[in-house]
Design a binder for these strands. Structure first.
Length: 938
RNA sequence: GCGGAUGUGGCGUAAUUGGUAGCCGUGCCAGACUUAGGAUCUGGUGCCGAAAGGCGUGGGGGUUCGAGUCCCUCCAUCCGCACCA
């Protein structure tokens, strides 16, 4: 072959690999396993842009490398194919989401195929496939049939709870873990009472403990999308998808008791090899705080207000109590004189959306309820206020106001003229007029039995006293909320639940999957029920064990987007199993993911949920691991680089970037594919859009230069570059190398094609080591010399270390160095080139395979062994020492590495250049580091 | 406000982990071959300076024979969380 013809090479080998099922893996007990996983893509209609494959390329390199190193590598791919966009599209066009999803997947598959990934496609999974979601539903049933036993600290079958109730009854909620407003609370009952409860009552109580449960809860309702959203689906108070407004609404909802796992999710982060920022984001989201709950008795009433505080030491500084407008018992607190004012305030707060409340943190509002509580220690009256700075969903929805030591309470107290009572000694310089003293440092004052203690001891002491006197108890609080699990949507997994007399019941496992029914429109019903209510047969007929018109109503909501992705890593291990979500054998063999690659945007969503479900499945003995992935890398985002043209307002004239300031222009996005190195292809531009056909141009130096800006890569900004177009021009191997060459994997960077030529040229240079200009194979079987072996082993060492250290960018340049050096040495020896091809093959599999076969190897390079590094080839017998005078590099002197320090010092001090710099002064000291440096100190 | 990350030539980046700062690539300059070059090859290219030399890894300070790397401090940019009691 004459030239490096990447098109035919890549096409041929991709077809060949597929034909030979070369990437198919099985549970080979003889080999060590390695599981390399990319985060599940959602197959969007827009297809892949060059940013998406970045992580896939890196993980593919790792997977191929591990395979060359003798590992049995599981490297699968599939699709998270339920989701809002397909459904929104369905609503607009009436096309079934399954159809658009199928089309999108096909497009993804084609794009992925062209890049030459080593995915085992025989293991592909799709969350919207009934054979897959059957097991998602199965897991839901297991969650429904389980509760969290805080004594054994794990999930158990609900039967063990029923057993407890039968024998010991219930003493009240275990509130060592407080999970926010979602959990149901029940009064204590005895074993006998339990046994006598009606079936319905028992079910109601059990729902309060099941890990998947139905409850009334405040949810984030998004009217525009017609569904509820979870906290991680909301950014800055609006929906992440579409940016629609979100309001709080009380609804009956399926939820997941992730809060039961808060402590383990937090603690187990410790040993995970994930980035610090990611772990920190999860810690933040879980938001553990240790403190106490304290009861304040309401004056002249028969109830208490429970507050949560992390500073029980400051209890003598309380000058008011504040409750949230949504506070459960607010009506009991309203005194007749304040009734109207408080009512008005509550309705005002309710109408302010979450976003408004967040945007306007500085505005201080609140109303006195007219009620007082009695301070448990001082017996003094403390006024109770309603204030919207208190969050209903956190803690108990009530706080004790300590203005002296909490800046929010301080602002509130100053605004309404409430007293500021310092109870911790602040530094002399502290200005009580301007701010509170929030630091957890100093000695307690004005605090009775706490006086003189340091804050930390005082907290302990205060909790002791509070508990002793029965005013409250030590308590740990988490910011993490239980996850709402139902969506008022069609395109998701049906929840396998039916209702008998309003009581939820699980479908029997053997009838799964409960398949999505056909419906006429993908919209809510006229009465506002979710789309599934439109289905003709959406009732459960128990006796016939089928969905039928005659029967009990089935659940109408579907599962959220994160359901299917919370366990997919397990399904890849055993994707076609009909009797279990994964077989014990497969799960024991593959265990968990060894390298998980994906974007950091999943920090508090997917990555928390998948950890939750993994722990649950572990607790219940279905799988042997309790973390999904030991090592996780977040690849950086590839941003778009937009180009602009400048049109003189009201004309068809376009002014080049450098001249635009002389005109009154408006900037327009121009398709970056019409621009090369910021120079516009004028002819292509005219053809791009009809209204530009007659455009005129004001050029600079004969060129039209475009402006540029870094933005998100998106269609609307005309800055999308697809892998397909790069592959068309340069080939997949160049794309793969170039994406890695851009810089460290974790770093975000704008896409720029500057430099891709260099990478492509490297492959051509490599080709030239094999073939001369006439297309004859140059390769000889001569024995390599020392220099050539050194070049090779330098590469083997570097590439191995780089891949193990996930530093993919640096190997690309070492390949270039290697090929440059061999070109200089005119080396075309088979032994050398063959080893280089193996090193290169994880990065550029097609050209490596082609040349590998040109060398006469009959089998695929994928099954080769990574060359063994031999340090002997790198040993030199002399070294050109950099010689510094007072730390400044002045000259180099060559010494044998066997040379004694005395000998070296003598020679250095008699060196011409050194003498010149010494200027006759004596050297104070000569530092000699063998093989590194010589430093002369004057 | 809290937390995380990052700051090195015109640009993307590298630096054996405390030891010659700028590898590799791009861009730029010069040259060769060519009817031509958006092909290929060769040489040069951190900044200042004619040179000797000086300066140089966001700023300042420190430790060290020696600092891009370690410590202190300040600044800038990006990301995440944010009235969480």
């Amino acid at each position: 072959m004459r030239d490096y013809d990447f098109k035919s090479i890549e096409k041929r080998w991709q077809a060949e690999w597929e034909k030979q099922h070369i990437y198919k893996v099985s549970e080979d007990q003889q080999k060590p396993k390695c599981y390399v996983l990319d985060m599940f893509p959602y197959p969007s209609g827009a297809g892949l842009h060059v940013g998406h494959p970045l992580g896939y390329i890196a993980s593919d390199i790792y997977a191929r490398y591990k395979r060359l190193k003798g590992y049995n590598v599981l490297h699968p791919m599939g699709y998270d194919s339920f989701g809002l966009p397909a459904e929104q599209y369905a609503i607009q066009t009436g096309q079934h989401p399954a159809v658009t999803t199928q089309n999108n997947i096909q497009r993804y598959r084609e794009q992925l195929g062209k890049i030459g990934f080593s995915f085992d496609w025989s293991r592909e999974v799709r969350t919207s496939d009934p054979n897959y979601y059957r097991w998602t539903q199965w897991i839901f049933i297991q969650l429904y049939q389980s509760w969290y036993n805080h004594t054994t600290d794990k999930a158990e079958p609900i039967e063990t709870l029923i057993e407890q109730f039968n024998h010991h009854g219930f003493t009240g909620v275990d509130d060592t873990v407080l999970t926010g407003g979602i959990e149901l609370e029940f009064p204590p009952f005895t074993a006998k009472e339990w046994q006598e409860f009606s079936h319905r009552k028992k079910e109601e109580i059990l729902l309060g403990f099941r890990l998947a449960y139905l409850s009334e809860a405040y949810v984030n309702w998004c009217p525009a999308l017609g569904t509820v959203l979870s906290n991680d689906e909301i950014k800055d108070g609006v929906s992440e998808r579409g940016g629609h407004s979100v309001e709080r609404k009380l609804m009956k909802q399926w939820s997941m008791r992730i809060t039961a796992y808060a402590e383990r999710l937090l603690n187990n982060l410790e040993n995970l090899d994930w980035s610090e920022s990611l772990k920190e984001a999860q810690r933040n989201w879980i938001g553990k705080s240790i403190g106490a709950s304290v009861f304040f008795k309401v004056q002249d009433r028969n109830f208490d207000i429970e507050v949560f505080t992390t500073r029980p030491d400051t209890i003598f500084g309380v000058s008011f109590i504040a409750v949230a407008p949504e506070y459960e018992f607010i009506h009991a607190l309203m005194q007749p004189e304040q009734m109207d004012e408080v009512q008005a305030y509550i309705s005002l707060s309710k109408n302010r959306s979450e976003r408004e409340r967040m945007a306007d943190v500085k505005r201080i509002t609140g109303v006195f309820t007219g009620s007082y509580v009695i301070h448990p220690f001082t017996g003094k009256e403390v006024p109770v206020w309603v204030a919207d700075y208190v969050l209903a969903g956190y803690g108990t929805g009530a706080v004790m106001g300590v203005p002296a030591h909490d800046s929010r309470d301080f602002a509130f107290a100053r605004f309404f003229g409430l007293p500021v009572l310092p109870v911790v000694q602040a530094p002399e310089t502290h200005n009580w007029e301007a701010e509170s003293y929030d630091a957890k440092e100093g000695r307690l004052i004005n605090s009775d039995f706490l006086n003189g203690f340091q804050v930390k001891q005082a907290i302990k002491k205060a909790i002791d006293h509070i508990e002793q006197k029965g005013f409250g108890k030590g308590k740990t609080n988490y910011r993490l909320r239980d996850a709402i699990f139902g969506r008022q949507r069609y395109w998701g997994e049906p929840i396998p639940i039916y209702y008998k007399d309003g009581v939820p019941h699980c479908l029997p496992e053997h009838v799964l999957p409960l398949e999505l029914p056909a419906i006429d429109k993908f919209l809510p019903t006229e009465t506002g029920e979710p789309p599934l209510a439109r289905a003709e047969k959406w009732k459960w007929n128990e006796s016939k064990a089928c969905t039928d018109i005659e029967g009990y109503p089935l659940e109408n909501t579907t599962m959220p987007g994160w359901a299917g992705s919370s366990w997919y890593f397990l399904r890849y291990m055993d994707p076609t199993n009909n009797t279990a979500l994964v077989s014990t054998e497969a799960a024991n063999y593959w265990e968990s993911v060894d390298l998980y690659l994906g974007g950091s945007e999943h920090a508090t969503g997917h990555l928390l949920y998948v950890r939750f479900w993994t722990k649950f499945l572990f607790d219940r003995g279905f799988i042997p691991v309790q973390e999904p992935a030991q090592k996780l890398i977040n690849q950086g985002m590839i941003q778009g680089r937009s180009n602009f043209v400048y049109r003189v307002k009201g004309t068809d004239r376009f002014v080049s970037y450098g001249l635009k300031d002389d005109y009154d222009v408006s900037a327009l996005h121009v398709d970056v594919n019409l621009v090369c190195n910021d120079e516009l292809d004028i002819e292509a531009f005219k053809k791009w859009r009809e209204d530009f056909a007659n455009a005129e141009f004001v050029l600079e130096s004969g060129k039209y230069i475009c402006g540029a800006e870094v933005e998100k890569m998106s269609k609307s900004k005309h800055n999308v570059v697809t892998p397909d177009s790069i592959i068309e021009d340069y080939g997949a191997d160049t794309l793969r190398l170039y994406e890695m060459f851009l810089g460290p994997l974790e770093q975000s960077k704008p896409w720029s094609t500057q430099g891709i030529e260099g990478v492509h040229r490297f492959l051509k240079k490599l080709w030239k080591l094999f073939y001369n200009a006439e297309g004859q194979l140059l390769v000889s079987t001569d024995v390599p010399d020392k220099k050539e072996l050194k070049v090779l082993h330098k590469l083997i060492k570097k590439v191995g270390e780089d891949i193990e250290g996930f530093s993919f960018n640096t190997s690309v340049s070492s390949f270039m160095i290697c090929v440059n050096e061999l070109t200089d040495l005119k080396c075309s020896k088979k032994e050398i080139l063959q080893a280089i091809l193996i090193c290169l093959s994880p990065y550029a599999p097609h050209i490596s395979e082609e040349l590998w076969h040109a060398l006469g190897n009959p089998n695929s390079i994928i099954n080769a062994s990574f060359p063994e590094f031999n340090p002997a080839y790198l040993i030199e017998d002399s070294f050109s020492y950099p010689v510094s005078i007072n730390g400044k590099h002045r000259t180099n002197i060559e010494f044998s590495l066997q040379a004694s320090p005395q000998e070296m010092e003598q020679k250095v001090l008699s060196d011409e250049t050194v003498l010149k710099w010494l200027e006759g002064k004596p050297a104070k000291k000569v530092i000699i580091v063998k093989g590194k440096i010589v430093n002369v100190v004057i």
